[in-house]
């Protein structure tokens, strides 16, 4: 999905507000420790056409939330991060199904981005007591974004790009 500059700026502003880097307790990511835009793009690109519309609608709904919630005449990216966090929290608790669900889509993006960061995941303590097994391989972790795979050429007759 190609994002406009305005959208890209707001994706970051909205998703980072789920876990503000200015918070004083809890799991606090450092500024720029997490690539929110990348997670949003991967999810959008991997989704059905309909879900992609939903992901984009969620972005615009949140982006314009300060206006339709009567808070300020600006987009989310213009607000301080803690104000953004409060607005998102209200949207998640909304009585309107569509608002709640679209905000949840954004929360999924934020959670995937946060826990996709090795350092943030380590601080979440999810793996604190993980049992190590003798057969555990030494894992060379893939970079955050997989390198695009080269498409195999089509081969005529009795073969296919994925023939095995």
């Amino acid at each position: 999905m190609k994002l406009l500059a305005l959208e890209r700026k707001n994706v970051h502003a909205i998703l980072e507000a789920f876990a503000p880097h200015t918070a004083t307790e809890g799991l606090v990511p450092q500024k720029d420790e997490v690539d929110y835009v990348e997670a949003y793009e991967i999810i959008a690109d991997s989704s059905t056409d309909r879900a992609r519309i939903g992901v984009r609608a969620a972005l615009w709904m949140a982006m314009l939330a300060p206006m339709w919630m009567g808070i300020a005449l600006c987009t989310m990216a213009s607000l301080p991060i803690m104000d953004r966090a409060r607005i998102i929290d209200r949207m998640l608790a909304s009585n309107t199904f569509i608002v709640r669900e679209l905000t949840l889509l954004l929360k999924i993006g934020a959670a995937f981005a946060l826990m996709g960061s090795r350092s943030v995941r380590a601080r979440s303590n999810y793996d604190r007591n993980a049992v190590k097994r003798p057969s555990d391989p030494i894992v060379l972790r893939a970079p955050v974004r997989e390198r695009p795979q080269v498409s195999l050429p089509l081969v005529a007759r009795t073969s296919s790009p994925g023939v095995v």
């Binding site: 507000a17 876990a19 918070a23 004083t24 809890g26 799991l27 998102i88």
Partner: peptide, 9 residues
């Protein structure tokens, strides 16, 4: 979302 969520995380 926000600080309350971060505490749970």
């Amino acid at each position: 979302a926000g600080p309350a969520w971060q505490k749970l995380l």
